[in-house]
Design a protein around this nucleic acid. Structure first.
Lengths: 337, 337
DNA sequence: GTCAAATGTACAAGCGCTGTCAATAGAAAA
DNA sequence: TTTTCTATTGACAGCGCTTGTACATTTGAC
C-alpha cells in the first residue's frame, strides 16, 4: 500500500494541510519546515494520488494532445509526441494523446472528451489547429490551449517555425547552384504549410530576379502519389524544370520515383528537394536535400507555453523555433555532371 | 458544468448506483431500466469523470505502454502507439506512454513508475519485453501485462507474428527468382527479431537445398549505417551475393545506398529485400520488397488481450497475427536484365 | 516588550464515483 | 394463497486529496 499524504504528515510531524501546501508550492511555508517535509516525502517514497488530487483540486494535471489520426508512419506525429512527453517530464503534468478524425463535428465532440478528462490544457496540431469552430468552442469552455503551426489569428499561443523563410532558403540554394527553371509541387489547399512554402518559393524567385512561371507550379496533397503525378506533369512540359522543390519529403520521394521510372539521374538530370526532414530523407539514395522541421521542439514548446500561460495568464505569444537545412546529394548544379 | 451521475439518476428516476451499474456493464439491470438510463445518459450528454471513477473504484483505467526511447522517426513505435490508442477507444481505459531507456536498472525504476500512475495493465515492447528481471518484478507487483514479440516463455500473454516463417517466405521468394547466393545482414544480437529472421533465412536455404555459407551472413544492428557497412562487406567478397536480405528496412536502405555509391543497379545487379514494411519501403525507388509487420494490430491486440485477462483471469495466450508480403521492384531474377 | 504579520494547526466539507450490504421487488415453489 | 428464493435496486460510507474556517503560535520590526 503506497504512502498517503497523512502518512507524510505524521512522519514529518505536521498537519496534512501543510504537506499539501508544500506539494502545491504555496509560498507561506518556512524553508526549514519545507525541507523537513520534502525529506519525509522522499523517505516514504510518497507520490500524490493523481485522481484524488484532480478530483479535490479541480485540476487534472493533464495536457491533451489533439492530433489527426495519422496515416501510416507519420513521423511528424511521432516526433511531436516525443516532444510533448519530454515537456511533461519533471513536471506534475501528464500527457493524454487523443487522435481525432478531422472529418467529424470536432467542435461538438470535444465536449465529451473534456468532460471525461478535464485536461488543464490542450495542444492542437494541424489540421485541428486551423479549425476555427473548434478553437472557439475551447474559448467558450475556457480551456487554455496552444496550437502548432496554426494559420489562425484566433490562437493566442502558437508555436511554429518560419516555413516561408525556410522554403525561400532551400529554393535559394537551388538558385545558387545555378538553377533558373525550378518547379514546385505545392501542398494540399487549405493547409498553412501549402501557403507558406509556396510563398517562400516565390520569395526566392523574386529575390533572384527570376520571373514566376505559373506553369512550373502544380498542386499536390502531401502524399507520395501526388509527387509522382506532379513530377510527371512538370517533366512533360515542353521545357521541363531542372530542379523540383516538393512541399514535403513524401512528395519529393514521388518525384524521385518518377525520375527513376524515366531513367533520369538525380541530381545529374534533375535536382530534387523536399521539406520536413523526415527519416526517409536520410534513408533514400541519393540523400534528399530538405529542411528539418523541428517537431520535437515544437511539441515541447507548445506544452511549455500553454502551461506557462496558466501560471501567469498574460501575454499571448507566437513563438518561432529555429529550423535546420540539410543539404544532401539530391541537389547539384544543373546539367549532366 | 457537465452532468454528474447524480443528474442522470434524477433524470431517469433511479439511484446513482444503478446508473453506475449500467455504466460498468453489470448484468443485473433489467433491460427496460437499462434502456431508460441509457436514454438519460444520452439526453444529458453525460460522460463519467475519470478521476472520480478511478479514485472510488481503486482502478486507474490506465494501460501503460513501456517502450524504448525511440530513435528519430521510429515508425514501429508510432504504429504501435496508434494501435494501442485504437484499442482504448470506446473503452474506459486510457493509454499512458512511457519511454524508458533500456540501459538502466529498469526492474528497479519500474516501481516508481507504477507508484505514480498505478496502471491497471502494462504492455511491453522489445527490448523490455525480453527483460526477464523486469517481467519478474511485474509478477511480484502483481500487475497484469502483455508483451509484444517477446522471446521469453515467462510472459503469459504475448502477441507477435511468425517472423521466422515470414523471413523464410521472403528468402524463398529470392530463391524462386533464381538466386543461389543470398546474403543476409542480421539484426542486433539479443533481439528475438535477429534470431527469428536469421532462422527463417536458414530455413529457406535448407528447403531450397542451398548450403548455408556463413561468409554470406554479416552482423548489423538494425540501423541504416550498419546496412551500408554490411553491404560493403558482402559486396567485397570474392564472389559477392546476387541478392541481399536485410533484417529490416532501414538496413535494406543502407544496402541500396551502398549499391548506389558503387553504381550497381537494383534489381539488375543486386536484388534487395528488407523486413518490417516501414513507410520508407514504399517511398524509396525502386520500391522495396519486404514483409509488412502488423504493428497496429500488435499494439491493439496486446491491449485487448491484457484487458481481457483482467476480466477472466484465465488462459495465458500466445496470439499470432497475420503478416503481408510486399513484393516490389527491388527484387528480380539475377543477372543484368 | 509590544504588536501585526507571517506561519502553522485542527477540523469539516466535499470533489464524483463505486463498494458493501441491506431492502425490495418478482417469480417459483409449496 | 402463502412462503421461499433470487434477481434487482437503493442507501450510505468512503476513496485520498484540497480547501475553507477558526484559531494558535512564532517571528521580526518597532
Amino acid at each position: 500500500m503506497p504512502a498517503r499524504i497523512e502518512d507524510v504528515a505524521a512522519h514529518a510531524g505536521v498537519s496534512t494541510k501543510t504537506v499539501s501546501r508544500v506539494l502545491n508550492g504555496y509560498p507561506s511555508v518556512r524553508a526549514r519546515l519545507r525541507a523537513r517535509i520534502e525529506a519525509s516525502i522522499r523517505a516514504l517514497n510518497y507520490v500524490p494520488n493523481a485522481s484524488a488530487r484532480s478530483l479535490a483540486g479541480n485540476r487534472s494535471y493533464l495536457v491533451a494532445l489533439l492530433y489527426d489520426n495519422p496515416m501510416a508512419g507519420s513521423s511528424y506525429t511521432m516526433e511531436l509526441i516525443v516532444g510533448v512527453l519530454q515537456a511533461c517530464k519533471g513536471t506534475p503534468y501528464n500527457a493524454v494523446l487523443h487522435p481525432f478524425d478531422a472529418a467529424d463535428d470536432l467542435a461538438a465532440r470535444i465536449d465529451g472528451f473534456v468532460a471525461t478528462h478535464r485536461p488543464d490544457a490542450l495542444v492542437l496540431v494541424p489540421p485541428h489547429a486551423n479549425n476555427a469552430e473548434l478553437l472557439q468552442r475551447l474559448d467558450e469552455l475556457d480551456i487554455p490551449y496552444s496550437t502548432i503551426s496554426s494559420r489562425l489569428r484566433q490562437s493566442r499561443i502558437d508555436v511554429g517555425f518560419d516555413e516561408r523563410r525556410a522554403a525561400a532558403e532551400i529554393v535559394g540554394h537551388l538558385v545558387s547552384l545555378g538553377h533558373r527553371r525550378i518547379g514546385h509541387i505545392a501542398g494540399l489547399k487549405g493547409h498553412g504549410a501549402r501557403t507558406w512554402r509556396l510563398s517562400g518559393y516565390r520569395d526566392a524567385l523574386r529575390k533572384a530576379g527570376i520571373a514566376y512561371d505559373e506553369s512550373l507550379v502544380v498542386d499536390g496533397d502531401f502524399a507520395f502519389a501526388s509527387g509522382v503525378a506532379g513530377a510527371r506533369a512538370l517533366l512533360d512540359r515542353r521545357r521541363p524544370p531542372t530542379a523540383i522543390f516538393a512541399a514535403n519529403d513524401d512528395m519529393a520521394c514521388g518525384v524521385m520515383r518518377e525520375a527513376y521510372e524515366r531513367g533520369l539521374a538525380i541530381p545529374g538530370d534533375l535536382s530534387v528537394c523536399g521539406f520536413d526532414g523526415t527519416p526517409v530523407s536520410q534513408l533514400i539514395s541519393p540523400g534528399l536535400t530538405t529542411v528539418h522541421q523541428p517537431c520535437r521542439e515544437l511539441g515541447c514548446l507548445a506544452v511549455q507555453s500553454v502551461l506557462q500561460s496558466i501560471r501567469d495568464s498574460a501575454a499571448p505569444q507566437q513563438a518561432r523555433v529555429p529550423y535546420r537545412m540539410h543539404l544532401r546529394a539530391s541537389t547539384a548544379a544543373p546539367g549532366k555532371p
